[in-house]
Amino acid sequence: MKYWRKPLDLETTPLARGRVLVVKDRCKGCEFCVNYCARGVLGMSKHFNRKGYHYPEADPARICVNCRFCEAICPEFAIFSVEDPQT
């Protein structure tokens, strides 16, 4: 992540880590979460859900910081994140 000013406590404060969970059959493919994920974690799956929509999936190479914005912006209650216990 790029910073316009390096926070003074960057070294001392651990970044939160999250894990994205998708209730894929609730998704209707609006892509709000993909477009507004601050860390670019999400992309649309090539697969279809039961209703015939592509649904989001998290790129394991990218780091979710558990901001839960995807959870707030999802009109379908189809995506949310939880704190990753590994960190």
């Binding site: 209707k28 609006c30 707030a72 912006i73 999802c74 009109p75 209650f77």
Partner: peptide
Amino acid sequence: WCSGCGIGIVFN
């Protein structure tokens, strides 16, 4: 609600 409808966000 349709795909991309804002009502779901407000409801949330």
